[in-house]
Amino acid sequence: MTSIGTGYDLQNSVFSPDGRNFQVEYAVKAVENGGTCIGIRCKNGIILATEKIITSKLLRPGANRRIATVDRNIGVVSAGLVPDGRHFVSRARDEASSWRSTYKAPIPVKALAGRLGSYVQAYTLYSSVRPFGITAIVGGWDTDAETKVDGQVGIGPAVGSGGKVDGAKKGGPGLYMIEPSGLYWGYYGAATGKGRQAAKAELEKLDLSSGTLELEAGVMEAARIIYVAHEDSKDKDFELEMSWVSSVDGPTKGRHEQVPSSLLEEAERRAKKAMEGEDEETGSGEGEKMEE
């Protein structure tokens, strides 16, 4: 680390002579040790998944959820310092509810990502605070259905509102990843945490930008990717946690929910099988090497 000893990395909000904020870079280091988190943007919904490392046998299995619901249609998962993640989620919920009280409608995923990006960025500006030690993935589905204004009475004309334009942009999936600097991008497939490199490589194989991956198939892929990304820390046990949001006519009816246990188990079973398959291949590969 070239930064150490120069003194420019001891305080947040301070630029080094070459224009870097080292405290933010160090916060990223905290993220890089966190459990792998991924998000996938499918044709008809989004999926969030995370690898929850079991740090103690005494932890209650199935408890301690890491994926949070922020508004009915939006979920958040983060890698890095877990308490920072909870702070982030709590802010996200405040933003979603403040939007609702102003506009009487759910916040679009994009707008939420923007507001949270600004919030996280503010923690890079002052020496009296430290940056967030997390990278968060925010995913949701902006409804494509006709929605009422919260609290409205009546439905307007029975024949429906006139003059609608066919194919006018309506809702859809949204997936964003927010870094400790406050920087955020929209993603087809997002990965962060310890196994992000492996996870990214797998995500890239999926051709997500074509927008053809079905939600159920995405669940299987997400589970498999978490298992692949876990390979490097094989010695540690982990729990897979997954959630999804579909369109209004999909399985979750536009809501952010935990993936049902039956589907989760099926996805895990397939993921393990796929891993075994890979092990055999690599096993034979080593055999060949030995022959050489």
Binding site: Q23, K29, V31, S128
Partner: peptide, 17 residues
Amino acid sequence: NNYDNDAVTFSPQGRIF
């Protein structure tokens, strides 16, 4: 060390001493 004076400073490894 230089990074353990307060809770708002990350160490280069991303720890908060």
